[in-house]
Design a binder for these strands. Structure first.
Lengths: 198, 198
DNA sequence: CCCCCTTTAGTCAGGGCTGACTATCCAGCA
DNA sequence: TGCTGGATAGTCAGCCCTGACTAAAGGGGG
Protein backbone atom coordinates (compact mmCIF):
# COMPACT_ATOMS: atom_id res chain seq x y z
CA UNK A 1 0.00 0.00 0.00
CA UNK A 2 1.43 3.15 1.29
CA UNK A 3 5.21 3.02 1.41
CA UNK A 4 6.61 4.76 4.46
CA UNK A 5 7.63 8.35 3.95
CA UNK A 6 11.29 9.24 4.15
CA UNK A 7 10.33 11.97 6.65
CA UNK A 8 7.08 10.82 8.22
CA UNK A 9 6.62 13.70 10.68
CA UNK A 10 3.58 15.77 9.58
CA UNK A 11 5.50 18.90 10.44
CA UNK A 12 7.59 18.11 7.35
CA UNK A 13 4.51 18.41 5.15
CA UNK A 14 3.72 21.84 6.53
CA UNK A 15 7.32 22.93 6.01
CA UNK A 16 7.34 21.75 2.41
CA UNK A 17 4.02 23.48 1.78
CA UNK A 18 5.38 26.81 2.98
CA UNK A 19 8.54 26.41 0.94
CA UNK A 20 6.35 25.91 -2.13
CA UNK A 21 5.62 29.61 -1.71
CA UNK A 22 9.17 30.87 -1.38
CA UNK A 23 12.55 29.95 0.14
CA UNK A 24 12.85 30.67 3.84
CA UNK A 25 15.03 30.12 6.87
CA UNK A 26 13.83 27.85 9.68
CA UNK A 27 12.92 30.52 12.14
CA UNK A 28 10.75 32.31 9.60
CA UNK A 29 8.97 29.04 8.90
CA UNK A 30 8.28 28.62 12.58
CA UNK A 31 6.93 32.14 12.82
CA UNK A 32 4.49 31.61 9.97
CA UNK A 33 3.34 28.30 11.38
CA UNK A 34 2.44 30.02 14.63
CA UNK A 35 1.02 33.15 13.08
CA UNK A 36 -1.38 31.36 10.79
CA UNK A 37 -2.45 29.07 13.61
CA UNK A 38 -1.50 26.01 11.56
CA UNK A 39 0.45 24.81 14.59
CA UNK A 40 -2.84 23.94 16.29
CA UNK A 41 -3.15 20.76 14.27
CA UNK A 42 0.54 19.85 14.16
CA UNK A 43 2.90 18.92 16.92
CA UNK A 44 5.31 21.79 16.68
CA UNK A 45 8.34 22.82 18.70
CA UNK A 46 11.34 24.75 17.50
CA UNK A 47 13.70 21.89 18.08
CA UNK A 48 11.63 19.44 16.06
CA UNK A 49 11.43 22.03 13.32
CA UNK A 50 15.21 22.10 12.97
CA UNK A 51 15.37 18.32 13.14
CA UNK A 52 12.73 17.93 10.46
CA UNK A 53 14.47 20.37 8.14
CA UNK A 54 17.70 18.46 8.60
CA UNK A 55 15.84 15.27 7.68
CA UNK A 56 14.26 16.91 4.64
CA UNK A 57 17.70 18.05 3.57
CA UNK A 58 19.12 14.54 3.91
CA UNK A 59 16.16 13.17 1.94
CA UNK A 60 16.76 15.68 -0.84
CA UNK A 61 13.39 17.42 -0.49
CA UNK A 62 14.96 20.77 0.36
CA UNK A 63 18.41 22.34 -0.19
CA UNK A 64 20.28 24.99 1.70
CA UNK A 65 20.25 27.91 -0.67
CA UNK A 66 22.39 30.53 1.02
CA UNK A 67 23.58 31.55 4.41
CA UNK A 68 22.56 35.06 5.28
CA UNK A 69 24.13 37.08 8.00
CA UNK A 70 22.54 40.47 8.27
CA UNK A 71 24.47 42.78 10.53
CA UNK A 72 25.31 40.66 13.49
CA UNK A 73 22.55 38.07 13.99
CA UNK A 74 23.46 34.45 14.11
CA UNK A 75 23.66 33.19 10.59
CA UNK A 76 20.46 31.83 9.12
CA UNK A 77 20.36 29.23 6.40
CA UNK A 78 17.70 29.79 3.78
CA UNK A 79 16.17 26.59 2.42
CA UNK A 80 14.42 26.05 -0.91
CA UNK A 81 12.20 23.17 -1.95
CA UNK A 82 13.52 20.82 -4.65
CA UNK A 83 11.66 19.12 -7.46
CA UNK A 84 11.59 15.91 -5.41
CA UNK A 85 10.14 17.97 -2.57
CA UNK A 86 7.35 19.33 -4.75
CA UNK A 87 6.49 15.82 -5.79
CA UNK A 88 6.52 14.66 -2.20
CA UNK A 89 4.05 17.34 -1.06
CA UNK A 90 1.61 16.45 -3.77
CA UNK A 91 1.87 12.72 -3.34
CA UNK A 92 1.75 12.84 0.46
CA UNK A 93 -1.20 15.19 0.50
CA UNK A 94 -3.20 13.00 -1.85
CA UNK A 95 -2.47 9.91 0.16
CA UNK A 96 -3.35 11.55 3.50
CA UNK A 97 -6.65 12.71 2.08
CA UNK A 98 -7.57 9.51 0.30
CA UNK A 99 -6.73 6.91 2.97
CA UNK A 100 -8.00 7.09 6.52
CA UNK A 101 -5.28 5.63 8.73
CA UNK A 102 -5.55 4.08 12.16
CA UNK A 103 -4.95 6.76 14.73
CA UNK A 104 -4.93 5.94 18.41
CA UNK A 105 -6.82 8.51 20.45
CA UNK A 106 -6.00 8.25 24.14
CA UNK A 107 -9.66 8.44 25.00
CA UNK A 108 -10.36 5.14 23.25
CA UNK A 109 -7.79 3.39 25.43
CA UNK A 110 -9.35 4.89 28.52
CA UNK A 111 -12.82 3.83 27.38
CA UNK A 112 -11.68 0.27 26.93
CA UNK A 113 -10.89 0.26 30.66
CA UNK A 114 -13.97 2.11 31.77
CA UNK A 115 -15.30 -0.96 33.55
CA UNK A 116 -12.53 -0.58 36.13
CA UNK A 117 -14.21 2.48 37.64
CA UNK A 118 -17.28 2.33 39.90
CA UNK A 119 -20.27 3.63 37.91
CA UNK A 120 -20.71 6.84 39.88
CA UNK A 121 -17.05 7.71 39.55
CA UNK A 122 -17.20 7.06 35.80
CA UNK A 123 -20.19 9.35 35.49
CA UNK A 124 -18.43 12.07 37.44
CA UNK A 125 -15.27 12.14 35.29
CA UNK A 126 -17.25 11.90 32.06
CA UNK A 127 -19.32 14.91 33.11
CA UNK A 128 -16.11 16.83 33.52
CA UNK A 129 -15.05 15.78 30.04
CA UNK A 130 -18.33 16.86 28.62
CA UNK A 131 -17.95 20.31 30.12
CA UNK A 132 -14.39 20.59 28.79
CA UNK A 133 -15.58 19.54 25.34
CA UNK A 134 -18.25 22.23 25.44
CA UNK A 135 -15.50 24.74 26.13
CA UNK A 136 -13.40 23.51 23.22
CA UNK A 137 -16.39 23.66 20.91
CA UNK A 138 -17.06 27.24 21.99
CA UNK A 139 -13.41 28.20 21.36
CA UNK A 140 -13.31 26.63 17.94
CA UNK A 141 -16.53 28.36 16.94
CA UNK A 142 -15.15 31.70 18.09
CA UNK A 143 -11.88 31.24 16.20
CA UNK A 144 -13.80 30.44 13.05
CA UNK A 145 -16.22 33.34 13.41
CA UNK A 146 -13.38 35.77 13.95
CA UNK A 147 -11.48 34.45 10.96
CA UNK A 148 -14.56 34.66 8.78
CA UNK A 149 -15.15 38.22 9.95
CA UNK A 150 -11.60 38.98 8.80
CA UNK A 151 -12.53 37.75 5.35
CA UNK A 152 -10.75 34.36 5.48
CA UNK A 153 -12.26 32.02 2.86
CA UNK A 154 -13.98 28.85 4.06
CA UNK A 155 -11.40 26.61 2.40
CA UNK A 156 -8.76 27.86 4.84
CA UNK A 157 -10.98 27.02 7.79
CA UNK A 158 -11.85 23.53 6.71
CA UNK A 159 -9.54 21.90 9.27
CA UNK A 160 -11.27 23.80 12.07
CA UNK A 161 -14.59 22.70 10.70
CA UNK A 162 -13.36 19.12 10.85
CA UNK A 163 -12.11 19.51 14.41
CA UNK A 164 -15.50 20.91 15.31
CA UNK A 165 -17.34 17.98 13.74
CA UNK A 166 -15.24 15.52 15.76
CA UNK A 167 -15.65 17.45 18.99
CA UNK A 168 -19.41 17.56 18.57
CA UNK A 169 -19.61 13.87 17.78
CA UNK A 170 -17.54 13.09 20.86
CA UNK A 171 -19.74 15.27 22.99
CA UNK A 172 -22.88 13.49 21.81
CA UNK A 173 -21.22 10.15 22.45
CA UNK A 174 -20.19 11.12 25.97
CA UNK A 175 -23.66 12.41 26.79
CA UNK A 176 -25.24 9.14 25.72
CA UNK A 177 -22.60 7.13 27.54
CA UNK A 178 -23.31 8.97 30.78
CA UNK A 179 -27.00 8.11 30.42
CA UNK A 180 -26.18 4.42 29.94
CA UNK A 181 -23.92 4.38 32.97
CA UNK A 182 -26.65 5.91 35.10
CA UNK A 183 -29.03 3.00 34.47
CA UNK A 184 -29.55 1.07 37.70
CA UNK A 185 -28.93 -2.27 35.92
CA UNK A 186 -25.40 -1.17 35.16
CA UNK A 187 -24.62 -0.31 38.77
CA UNK A 188 -26.08 -3.65 39.78
CA UNK A 189 -24.12 -5.75 37.31
CA UNK A 190 -20.95 -3.81 38.07
CA UNK A 191 -21.34 -4.65 41.75
CA UNK A 192 -21.78 -8.29 40.90
CA UNK A 193 -18.79 -8.67 38.60
CA UNK A 194 -16.33 -6.08 39.85
CA UNK A 195 -17.57 -5.38 43.35
CA UNK A 196 -14.83 -7.03 45.32
CA UNK A 197 -12.02 -6.61 42.85
CA UNK A 198 -11.24 -2.90 42.75
CA UNK B 1 -2.39 20.77 35.44
CA UNK B 2 -1.61 17.30 34.43
CA UNK B 3 1.94 16.35 35.42
CA UNK B 4 3.62 14.21 32.81
CA UNK B 5 3.40 10.51 33.46
CA UNK B 6 6.56 8.63 34.31
CA UNK B 7 5.68 6.18 31.52
CA UNK B 8 3.50 8.13 29.10
CA UNK B 9 3.02 5.42 26.47
CA UNK B 10 -0.67 4.29 26.54
CA UNK B 11 0.50 0.72 26.13
CA UNK B 12 1.70 1.03 29.72
CA UNK B 13 -1.84 1.64 30.90
CA UNK B 14 -3.09 -1.49 29.18
CA UNK B 15 -0.24 -3.50 30.69
CA UNK B 16 -0.97 -2.24 34.18
CA UNK B 17 -4.66 -2.98 33.73
CA UNK B 18 -3.98 -6.61 32.81
CA UNK B 19 -1.58 -6.99 35.72
CA UNK B 20 -4.36 -5.80 38.02
CA UNK B 21 -5.90 -9.16 37.23
CA UNK B 22 -2.89 -11.36 37.90
CA UNK B 23 0.89 -11.46 37.49
CA UNK B 24 2.08 -12.38 34.00
CA UNK B 25 5.12 -12.54 31.77
CA UNK B 26 5.47 -10.11 28.85
CA UNK B 27 4.67 -12.54 26.09
CA UNK B 28 1.44 -13.57 27.80
CA UNK B 29 0.47 -9.90 28.10
CA UNK B 30 1.05 -9.45 24.41
CA UNK B 31 -1.05 -12.49 23.59
CA UNK B 32 -3.99 -11.23 25.63
CA UNK B 33 -3.75 -7.77 24.11
CA UNK B 34 -4.06 -9.31 20.67
CA UNK B 35 -6.65 -11.88 21.59
CA UNK B 36 -9.05 -9.45 23.15
CA UNK B 37 -8.58 -7.05 20.27
CA UNK B 38 -7.51 -4.28 22.64
CA UNK B 39 -4.50 -3.77 20.40
CA UNK B 40 -6.77 -2.11 17.86
CA UNK B 41 -6.81 1.10 19.85
CA UNK B 42 -3.21 1.00 21.07
CA UNK B 43 0.03 1.17 19.16
CA UNK B 44 1.40 -2.25 19.98
CA UNK B 45 4.51 -4.10 18.87
CA UNK B 46 6.38 -6.73 20.82
CA UNK B 47 9.48 -4.61 21.10
CA UNK B 48 7.62 -1.64 22.53
CA UNK B 49 5.93 -4.00 24.96
CA UNK B 50 9.28 -5.08 26.40
CA UNK B 51 10.49 -1.49 26.46
CA UNK B 52 7.39 -0.31 28.28
CA UNK B 53 7.62 -3.07 30.87
CA UNK B 54 11.24 -2.11 31.49
CA UNK B 55 10.15 1.49 32.00
CA UNK B 56 7.33 0.45 34.33
CA UNK B 57 9.84 -1.56 36.33
CA UNK B 58 12.21 1.41 36.62
CA UNK B 59 9.28 3.61 37.66
CA UNK B 60 8.31 1.13 40.39
CA UNK B 61 4.87 0.36 38.97
CA UNK B 62 5.65 -3.32 38.45
CA UNK B 63 8.19 -5.75 39.90
CA UNK B 64 9.78 -8.86 38.52
CA UNK B 65 8.24 -11.59 40.62
CA UNK B 66 10.00 -14.72 39.48
CA UNK B 67 11.83 -16.14 36.56
CA UNK B 68 10.21 -19.27 35.25
CA UNK B 69 11.97 -21.71 32.99
CA UNK B 70 9.69 -24.59 32.11
CA UNK B 71 11.59 -27.37 30.38
CA UNK B 72 13.83 -25.63 27.91
CA UNK B 73 12.07 -22.44 26.78
CA UNK B 74 13.89 -19.16 27.11
CA UNK B 75 13.30 -17.90 30.59
CA UNK B 76 10.30 -15.71 31.14
CA UNK B 77 10.10 -13.11 33.86
CA UNK B 78 6.73 -12.84 35.54
CA UNK B 79 5.79 -9.30 36.54
CA UNK B 80 3.36 -8.19 39.23
CA UNK B 81 1.80 -4.78 39.73
CA UNK B 82 2.83 -2.79 42.81
CA UNK B 83 0.76 -0.54 45.03
CA UNK B 84 2.17 2.49 43.20
CA UNK B 85 1.14 0.82 39.97
CA UNK B 86 -2.43 0.35 41.16
CA UNK B 87 -2.59 3.98 42.08
CA UNK B 88 -1.18 4.97 38.69
CA UNK B 89 -3.82 3.03 36.76
CA UNK B 90 -6.61 4.65 38.67
CA UNK B 91 -5.23 8.14 38.51
CA UNK B 92 -4.25 7.93 34.85
CA UNK B 93 -7.58 6.46 33.83
CA UNK B 94 -9.51 9.21 35.58
CA UNK B 95 -7.41 11.89 34.00
CA UNK B 96 -7.67 10.45 30.49
CA UNK B 97 -11.42 10.28 30.81
CA UNK B 98 -11.92 13.68 32.37
CA UNK B 99 -9.65 15.83 30.20
CA UNK B 100 -9.80 15.86 26.42
CA UNK B 101 -6.26 16.43 25.17
CA UNK B 102 -5.06 17.86 21.89
CA UNK B 103 -4.48 15.03 19.48
CA UNK B 104 -3.17 15.66 16.02
CA UNK B 105 -5.01 13.61 13.40
CA UNK B 106 -3.08 13.47 10.14
CA UNK B 107 -6.24 14.23 8.23
CA UNK B 108 -6.50 17.69 9.83
CA UNK B 109 -3.04 18.58 8.57
CA UNK B 110 -3.96 17.44 5.09
CA UNK B 111 -7.18 19.43 5.20
CA UNK B 112 -5.30 22.58 6.10
CA UNK B 113 -3.47 22.19 2.78
CA UNK B 114 -6.48 21.20 0.75
CA UNK B 115 -6.33 24.44 -1.24
CA UNK B 116 -3.13 23.20 -2.89
CA UNK B 117 -5.06 20.65 -4.94
CA UNK B 118 -7.16 21.53 -7.98
CA UNK B 119 -10.86 21.18 -7.03
CA UNK B 120 -11.54 18.13 -9.17
CA UNK B 121 -8.52 16.32 -7.80
CA UNK B 122 -9.59 17.16 -4.25
CA UNK B 123 -13.04 15.78 -4.93
CA UNK B 124 -11.59 12.60 -6.38
CA UNK B 125 -9.37 11.77 -3.42
CA UNK B 126 -12.06 12.66 -0.90
CA UNK B 127 -14.46 10.30 -2.65
CA UNK B 128 -11.91 7.56 -2.16
CA UNK B 129 -11.69 8.45 1.51
CA UNK B 130 -15.43 8.36 1.85
CA UNK B 131 -15.57 4.87 0.40
CA UNK B 132 -12.78 3.70 2.70
CA UNK B 133 -14.61 5.18 5.68
CA UNK B 134 -17.75 3.31 4.70
CA UNK B 135 -15.71 0.12 4.75
CA UNK B 136 -14.32 0.85 8.20
CA UNK B 137 -17.78 1.60 9.51
CA UNK B 138 -19.04 -1.69 8.15
CA UNK B 139 -16.15 -3.58 9.74
CA UNK B 140 -16.64 -1.95 13.12
CA UNK B 141 -20.35 -2.70 13.05
CA UNK B 142 -19.67 -6.34 12.22
CA UNK B 143 -17.10 -6.70 15.00
CA UNK B 144 -19.57 -5.28 17.47
CA UNK B 145 -22.46 -7.42 16.32
CA UNK B 146 -20.38 -10.56 16.51
CA UNK B 147 -19.16 -9.69 19.99
CA UNK B 148 -22.69 -8.96 21.16
CA UNK B 149 -23.85 -12.26 19.71
CA UNK B 150 -21.13 -13.92 21.82
CA UNK B 151 -22.67 -12.32 24.89
CA UNK B 152 -20.09 -9.58 25.44
CA UNK B 153 -21.60 -6.80 27.59
CA UNK B 154 -21.94 -3.34 26.07
CA UNK B 155 -19.48 -1.81 28.52
CA UNK B 156 -16.67 -3.84 26.91
CA UNK B 157 -17.59 -2.54 23.47
CA UNK B 158 -17.76 1.08 24.40
CA UNK B 159 -14.45 1.93 22.71
CA UNK B 160 -15.72 0.45 19.45
CA UNK B 161 -18.88 2.48 19.83
CA UNK B 162 -16.73 5.58 20.19
CA UNK B 163 -14.64 4.71 17.14
CA UNK B 164 -17.86 4.25 15.23
CA UNK B 165 -19.21 7.63 16.31
CA UNK B 166 -16.02 9.34 15.11
CA UNK B 167 -15.98 7.46 11.81
CA UNK B 168 -19.57 8.39 11.11
CA UNK B 169 -18.98 12.03 11.96
CA UNK B 170 -15.96 12.09 9.66
CA UNK B 171 -17.93 10.51 6.89
CA UNK B 172 -20.68 13.11 7.16
CA UNK B 173 -18.06 15.84 7.17
CA UNK B 174 -16.33 14.48 4.08
CA UNK B 175 -19.62 14.16 2.22
CA UNK B 176 -20.50 17.78 2.91
CA UNK B 177 -17.00 18.90 2.03
CA UNK B 178 -17.20 17.20 -1.35
CA UNK B 179 -20.43 19.04 -2.05
CA UNK B 180 -18.83 22.38 -1.21
CA UNK B 181 -15.85 21.68 -3.43
CA UNK B 182 -18.13 20.85 -6.32
CA UNK B 183 -19.71 24.32 -6.31
CA UNK B 184 -18.71 26.18 -9.47
CA UNK B 185 -17.75 29.29 -7.45
CA UNK B 186 -15.05 27.31 -5.73
CA UNK B 187 -13.51 26.12 -8.98
CA UNK B 188 -13.63 29.67 -10.24
CA UNK B 189 -11.99 31.28 -7.23
CA UNK B 190 -9.40 28.52 -7.08
CA UNK B 191 -8.45 29.25 -10.68
CA UNK B 192 -8.09 32.91 -9.85
CA UNK B 193 -5.96 32.57 -6.77
CA UNK B 194 -4.03 29.35 -7.33
CA UNK B 195 -4.34 28.87 -11.06
CA UNK B 196 -0.79 29.60 -12.10
CA UNK B 197 0.94 28.50 -8.93
CA UNK B 198 0.62 24.78 -8.73
C1' DC C 1 25.38 54.32 30.05
C1' DC C 2 24.06 50.24 32.48
C1' DC C 3 20.84 46.69 33.54
C1' DC C 4 17.28 43.64 32.60
C1' DC C 5 13.65 41.78 29.92
C1' DT C 6 11.97 40.10 25.53
C1' DT C 7 12.68 38.49 20.99
C1' DT C 8 15.37 36.14 17.81
C1' DA C 9 17.91 31.98 16.66
C1' DG C 10 19.81 27.70 17.32
C1' DT C 11 22.09 23.42 19.74
C1' DC C 12 22.29 19.07 22.17
C1' DA C 13 22.10 15.23 25.55
C1' DG C 14 19.16 11.76 26.78
C1' DG C 15 15.65 8.81 26.41
C1' DG C 16 11.80 6.61 23.54
C1' DC C 17 10.34 3.65 19.71
C1' DT C 18 10.61 0.54 15.76
C1' DG C 19 12.18 -2.65 12.27
C1' DA C 20 15.08 -6.23 11.79
C1' DC C 21 17.36 -9.85 13.78
C1' DT C 22 18.29 -14.10 16.86
C1' DA C 23 17.16 -18.46 18.92
C1' DT C 24 14.48 -22.47 20.60
C1' DC C 25 10.83 -25.88 20.44
C1' DC C 26 7.51 -28.76 18.32
C1' DA C 27 4.66 -30.97 14.76
C1' DG C 28 4.37 -33.03 10.52
C1' DC C 29 6.14 -35.21 6.73
C1' DA C 30 9.31 -37.62 3.68
C1' DT D 1 16.17 -39.63 11.04
C1' DG D 2 16.41 -35.14 9.05
C1' DC D 3 14.17 -31.08 7.33
C1' DT D 4 10.92 -27.29 7.22
C1' DG D 5 7.59 -24.05 8.82
C1' DG D 6 5.36 -21.83 12.35
C1' DA D 7 4.74 -20.49 17.08
C1' DT D 8 7.19 -18.85 21.10
C1' DA D 9 10.24 -15.43 23.29
C1' DG D 10 13.31 -11.80 23.41
C1' DT D 11 17.22 -8.37 21.98
C1' DC D 12 19.28 -4.31 19.88
C1' DA D 13 21.18 -0.70 16.73
C1' DG D 14 19.89 3.43 15.17
C1' DC D 15 16.90 6.98 14.19
C1' DC D 16 13.56 10.34 16.09
C1' DC D 17 11.88 13.82 19.36
C1' DT D 18 11.71 16.73 23.22
C1' DG D 19 12.99 19.57 27.14
C1' DA D 20 16.45 22.26 28.66
C1' DC D 21 20.05 25.06 27.62
C1' DT D 22 22.93 28.87 25.19
C1' DA D 23 23.61 33.39 23.26
C1' DA D 24 23.24 37.68 20.96
C1' DA D 25 20.48 41.93 19.79
C1' DG D 26 17.16 45.42 20.69
C1' DG D 27 14.68 48.39 23.59
C1' DG D 28 13.34 50.97 27.39
C1' DG D 29 13.68 52.71 32.14
C1' DG D 30 16.39 54.76 35.47
Amino acid sequence: MERRRRVPNPLALAVLAWLLWEPMHPYELGRRLKQTGKDRHIRYTRSSLYMVIEQLDRAGFVTAQETVRDSARPERTVYAITEAGRHEVHDWLRSLLAQPRAEYPHFAVALSLLSLLPPDEAVEVLRRRSAALAGRIEETRTTMDEARADGVAWIFLVEEQYALALLEAERRFVTELIESLKQPDYAKSWQETMGGRV
